[in-house]
Amino acid sequence: MDANDQYSSPITSAVGLEETTQPGSSQSREETSSFLPSQSDAKKDSDKSDEEDKFMHRLKIKQRWGWFISLCIQIAFLLGVCYVGNTIASYLPLPIPGNICSMALLLTLLLTGIIDAKKIAIASRFLLSYMSVFFIPAGVTILTCLPIIQNHIPQFILVCAITTVTVFLVTAVTVMLVSRVQRIVISKLAKRKSTKSHSFKLRVRED
C-alpha cells in the first residue's frame, strides 16, 4: 500500500516519497513525482559531469515551477466549480450548503468524463493532504461562544466524547452487519442461479 503515502500528512508523504522511489514501482513513482518534484534523482547524478548537473538543476527548477503553476490553475478551476456549486445551492429550496453542492457537481463532472481526474490530481492531493489547515479559522471562532457555555464546559466536552464514541461504534457495526448480510444474500442468490442454470442445462441435455 505504498501509494497511500501521498494522501497522508505532509511530512509522512515526504518520507514515503523516498521510500517509493527506491524500489521504483513505476506507478507510484510517476504519481509521487507529479505530486512533488523528486529530489533523490539529483543525488544519483552527483558523480556525473558538471554540465549534466546544471541541466538537472535547471530541469528541477522548471519542474517545481510547472508544479506550482499547474497547482494554481487547478485551484482556480476548483474555485470556479465551488462558485457554480454555491450558486446552485442558493436556488435550491432545501438548506443544502454550497460545499456539498460543489462536491456533487465535481463528482458528476468526473463520473460523466467531462473533466479528466488527472487534470485536477495535483490540486486535489495538495488540498487533501493539508485539509486540517482550512479548519483552523473555524476552530478559532469557538472563542466567541466560550462566555455562553463557560459554566458547563466539562459537561459539554463529556457530551461530545460520549456521542462521538457511540456514533462511531453504531455506524461501524451497522456497516459491518449490513455488508455481511449482503454478502450472504448475494452468495445464496448466486447459488440458486447456478443450480437453476445447472438444472436447465440438464433438462436441455435430456431433451
Binding site: 476548483l78 456549486g85 460543489s102 463528482l107 485539509m131 479559522p137 478559532v140
Partner: peptide, 30 residues
C-alpha cells in the same frame, strides 16, 4: 477576533475547494 478573521480570509475561502475535492477521492474508489 474580527481582525484575525479578516486576515485568514484566504484560508477560509479554500475550505470550499478542500471539501469539494473529496469528490476526487470518492471518484477514485467508485
Amino acid at each position: 477576533l474580527s481582525s484575525y478573521e479578516t486576515g485568514v480570509g484566504v484560508i477560509s475561502a479554500m475550505l470550499g475547494p478542500a471539501t469539494a475535492v473529496l469528490a476526487f477521492s470518492i471518484y477514485q474508489q467508485r
